[in-house]
Design a protein around this nucleic acid. Structure first.
Length: 477
RNA sequence: GACCCCUUCGUCUAUUGGUUAGGACUCAAGAUUUUCAUUCUUGCAAGAGGGGUUCAAUUCCCCUAGGGGUCGCCA
C-alpha cells in the first residue's frame, strides 16, 4: 500500500464547520503534497440526524473554498459510491461475517434497559460499559427472539485484558487497555451501521492509507484496530489532529463561537484568509512565514510539523490576515467579489471605472468584504448632513474654499491625481487657508463626513461633474 | 470517576541539550500623513511546579498540578 489515499468523511448534519474545514484542509494538503488522492466520503449513517440539503451544502462550501476532491459524490471511480447510506449491504455483509466468526454477537437490550444499566453503573462509580448480558444467550434463545421479531443490534466482542498499541504519526506510541473499550454496537437495529463499522469497512475498501481525523477519535482507535484484526485487514496509518478550541480551551462549539464556514464567508471573510488562517492553527512551517496561498500550502505542508496541543480559534488574527489579502489581491478581483453586495444596496454601478476606484480606496481601510460596501456609501448614497456640519459648511472661510473649487474645478484640463493635487496646493496658497479649515469643508460637501480618502482620490472617484454638483449644493445659487 | 492526550509571551507559534528564548496578532508609545486608513520604528509580554540525567536543560526521564478529549443503536 504505497499509494497515498486520504479521506475527509463528514457527517452531513448541516454545514461545514471550522473544525471540519481544518480536518478537510489537512487531508487535502497532505494528499496534494504527497501526490496522493483526496477523497470525500459522506457519513450519513444516522437517520435521526438527517438534514435535507446538507450534502449539497457541504460540497458547495468545499468548492467555494477551492478544496476540490479527486473522488467523492459526483466524482465516482471504482470505489464508488461515496455516500454511506448507499453502501448498506456492504456493512451488513461484514457484520454478518463478524457474527458468524464469533467476533460479534447480537444484543436485544432496549435503549431503556441500557440507560438504566448505565445509570446504575454510574451511581456505583463503575466504568460505564455494556455488561454483556446478551452474550450469554444460547443459540436457540437467539433464534427464538429473532423469529419473534425482536429488534437487535450487533455488538463487537472486545477482547479482555489486552493492550492495544499503535503509532500515531503526530503523537507517537499510544497504548490503551481493551478493558476500557465498550462492546461497541456495529450494526444498529434499523440495519444502519455505526460510525465504527462503516468507517473501518470503507477505509479498507477504499484503500485509505492514512486516517487523518480529529483527536476526539483517539480513544476509539483500539476498537477500530481490533476490527481490522477481526476482518483480517492491514491497518492504515493513524493521524490524530489536535482540536480547535473555544477561548476557554474547550472543544470549539457553536455555543461560544460562530463555527459555520458559510457564515464567515457571508460575513465577508475571504476564502484565502480563512484557509491560510486555519492552516496555521496547528501547523507551522520551519521559518517565520505566515502568508500562504493554497498552492503554497500544498508545497510546504507536512504532518511532521503538525502540533500536538489544541489551538484557540482567535478572530483577531483572522481579521488581520483578511486585511492582508484584501490589500494584496487584485482590485478587479475584490471588485468582482463585492459586486453583488453593492447591487443589493441599490448602488448605481453603471460607471465601472468609478466602482473600481472606490474599491481601491475602500479595501485599504477595511478588513471584511462587507465593510467595503459600507465604506463606499459616501460615494454612492452619502448620509444626510448633521446640523453642526451644515454650520461648518456655511462659515465664511468654508464658503470661500467651496467657491474656489466650484470655480476652478471646471477649468481644470486634466483629471488625474497629480493635476488635482496641484490644484489643491494652489488653492491653499491662494486662499491662505490650510489644514483642517481647508479640508474639512471640502470633505463635508463632497462625502458628507469629516474623514475619508485623500482629497484627489475623492474627487476622482466622484468624477468632475458630480464633484462640482456636490460643492454647489452648499453655495448660494 | 476511569482511560487517553496535551502544557513556551493574552493568542498562534519558532527554538528537537549550549540562544540576550525568535517571529506574528493584539495592546502601548513614537515617526510619516490635511483627516481616516496604511506603512515604519520601538516597547510590554513566556518555558506550570518539583525532582532527576548531564559540564550544560525550554529541549531527555519521572512525579505533581492544570487543561482537554472519550466513555451513545451520534459522528
Amino acid at each position: 500500500m504505497n499509494e497515498i489515499r486520504v479521506r475527509f468523511a463528514p457527517s452531513p448534519t448541516g454545514y461545514l464547520h471550522i473544525g471540519g474545514l481544518r480536518t478537510a484542509l489537512y487531508n487535502y494538503l497532505f494528499a496534494r503534497k504527497e501526490k496522493g488522492t483526496f477523497i470525500l466520503r459522506i457519513e450519513d449513517t444516522d437517520k435521526s440526524r438527517q438534514v435535507p440539503g446538507a450534502i449539497e451544502n457541504l460540497i458547495n462550501t468545499l468548492n467555494a473554498l477551492g478544496l476540490d476532491y479527486d473522488e467523492g459524490p459526483g466524482r465516482e471511480s471504482k470505489f464508488a459510491p461515496y455516500i454511506q447510506s448507499e453502501r448498506l449491504s456492504l456493512y451488513k455483509e461484514h457484520a454478518q461475517y463478524l457474527l458468524d466468526s464469533g467476533f460479534a454477537y447480537p444484543c436485544f437490550c432496549s435503549p431503556e434497559t441500557l440507560t438504566k444499566m448505565r445509570e446504575e453503573q454510574q451511581s456505583k462509580g463503575e466504568f460505564v460499559k455494556y455488561d454483556r448480558r446478551c452474550l450469554s444467550l444460547t443459540k436457540s434463545e437467539i433464534e427464538q427472539k429473532i423469529a419473534a421479531g425482536e429488534k437487535y443490534v450487533i455488538r463487537l466482542k472486545m477482547p479482555d485484558n489486552r493492550k492495544f498499541q499503535f503509532n500515531d504519526l503526530i503523537r507517537g506510541e499510544v497504548e490503551m487497555d481493551s478493558n476500557q473499550s465498550d462492546d461497541q454496537v456495529l450494526l444498529k437495529s434499523d440495519g444502519f451501521p455505526t460510525y465504527h463499522l462503516a468507517a473501518v469497512v470503507d477505509d479498507h475498501l477504499m484503500q485509505i492509507s492514512h486516517i487523518i481525523r480529529g483527536e476526539e477519535w483517539l480513544s476509539s482507535t483500539p476498537k477500530h484496530i481490533y476490527l481490522y484484526e477481526c476482518l483480517g485487514w492491514e491497518t492504515p496509518k493513524w493521524v490524530h489532529l489536535p482540536l480547535i478550541l473555544n477561548a476557554d480551551r474547550t472543544k470549539l462549539s457553536k455555543r461560544m463561537n460562530d463555527v459555520s464556514v458559510d457564515s464567515y464567508l457571508a460575513k465577508g471573510y475571504l476564502k484565502e484568509a480563512l484557509i491560510n488562517f486555519v492552516a496555521l492553527l496547528g501547523w507551522h512551517p520551519s521559518d517565520d512565514r505566515e502568508l500562504f496561498t493554497l498552492d503554497e500550502l500544498c508545497n510546504a505542508f507536512s504532518l511532521e510539523r503538525v502540533n500536538k496541543a489544541g489551538a484557540i480559534f482567535d478572530l483577531t488574527k483572522l481579521d488581520w490576515m483578511n486585511g492582508q489579502y484584501l490589500h494584496s489581491l487584485p482590485v478587479e478581483d475584490i471588485a468582482m467579489r463585492c459586486k453583488h453586495l453593492f447591487l443589493e444596496k441599490g448602488y448605481d454601478l453603471s460607471d465601472e471605472n468609478k466602482y473600481q476606484l472606490a474599491i481601491a480606496v475602500a479595501r485599504e481601510r477595511c478588513t471584511l468584504l462587507n465593510e467595503i460596501v459600507d465604506y463606499c456609501k459616501m460615494f454612492y448614497q452619502p448620509e444626510e448632513l448633521k446640523n453642526d456640519d451644515i454650520k461648518t459648511l456655511l462659515a465664511p472661510e468654508a464658503q470661500k474654499v467651496l467657491a474656489w473649487f466650484a470655480t476652478n474645478l471646471p477649468i481644470l484640463s486634466a483629471w488625474d491625481t497629480e493635476s488635482i493635487q496641484n490644484l489643491v496646493n494652489s488653492g491653499i496658497a491662494e486662499l491662505g487657508i490650510k489644514g483642517k479649515k481647508f479640508y474639512t469643508p471640502l470633505r463635508l460637501a463632497l462625502i458628507h463626513q469629516q474623514h475619508g480618502p485623500e482629497l484627489p482620490s475623492t474627487f476622482i472617484i466622484l468624477g468632475k461633474e458630480e464633484s462640482i454638483k456636490r460643492l454647489q449644493q452648499y453655495l448660494p445659487s
